[in-house]
Design a protein around this nucleic acid. Sequence first.
DNA 1: TCTGGGGTCCTAGGACCC
DNA 2: TCTGGGGTCCTAGGACCC
Length: 423
Amino acid sequence: MRDFYLMVDCNNFYASCERVFDPSLEGKPVVVLSNNDGCVIARSNEAKALGVVMGEPAYKREAFFSRSGVHVFSSNYALYGDMSARVMRILAGFSEEAEVYSIDECFLLLRGFSSASLLRTAKEIRRTVRQWTGIPVCVGIARTKTLAKIANRLAKKESGDGVRLLEDEEDIDRVLSGLETGDIWGIGRRSARRLGDCGVRTALELKGRDDDWVRRHLTVTGLRTVLELRQIPCIALEDAPPPARSLVCSRSFGTRIENLASLEEAVSAYVQRAGEKLRRKGLVAGAVQVFLETNRFQPGPQYAGSRCRALPAPTADTLALHGPALEILRDIHKPGYRYQKAGVILQDLSPATGRQLSFLEPHGEEKTRRDALMRVMDRINTVHGRGTLTLAASGLGKKEWHMRQERRSPSYTTSWAELPVVH
DNA sequence: TCTGGGGTCCTAGGACCC
DNA sequence: TCTGGGGTCCTAGGACCC
């Protein structure tokens, strides 16, 4: 009777979401593309079997997709985000200690369960999520989060009931001996290659290295990972997410942009979106950063510029963020390049309430009016759709910088206009 | 023509302090 | 020949995650 981590991971999540609302896709190859229809970021099992690779540029595979009957979707984050929230709500019903780790993954901590009851609970989780949302999930169970991630891999790979418990030391070692270091949670490509140069190729070999050696080669984070392979919990459950430190809004452009005016429109739009996110979280930003870059995959001259500027006073007011952001853009912009991407990063975030005020920021009646303006904008954009009310600076005409989304499914669950119709 | 977006953490090195 | 020890803060860059 010990504490166990369950790693619940939705299978091929984005592809599964598309399938929930179009059951005719069941059994057929489905892929979902990144923003801008750039590269493949999700694949159904059938698409994997056809050899479609994660991260592959979509344009290289267009012909293959249509030849092989692959169903291709632009990513639809409104839909995936809403489906994710539904899944997470169900999972929270199985443990008070839950960490939503990503849009499609959740750790649950179960205390004082026997092996038999753990497996029973895990199967019930799968059944419930499937029945209530239509999303298939797999569950990995172990004494540490790192091993639970590995157990989840096994649950997906081994043909079985989608549940895998990794507890017995011999079983763990057998599994680790067949696992490359790069497949361990927390060991990336770079570290895996360096480890390989030292003759460490499998997770079992890494587990056997002494602590000092690991610390020297992988720093303290690597040591924590190795201890977790030895069933010593080092990475705690984060059931209350730490306050955000920064916030980003960035996009690749639909076409390459050369002229400053279009870049200004794009950055203007990103500032507005970043401001919305900031206010929704109840935060203010102390500094704003803007970056701009060319397409590093293309031949030709490359340039990347970035600069951060402290604001006179922390704010969540789009108008107060907008001016400095555009000034930075004009500073870092160099003519003659074909830009591919730009972004706005808000830094030094802090809670909007209960902070020291400054004489430099709006106060009294002016502040009340500005806050009210932001609230009205957010409200209108929530009710009538994002972008209903915007700064004129983000452009009134055709927006050449807009990302491509040529194959997006409807926002079935988050937009009245796009509700599915039942015949 | 066409290659995503949004985050966190750690370390090293410099500036500065007593 | 000899040139301390200990600390903080900041930033840039690297690595990792999904």
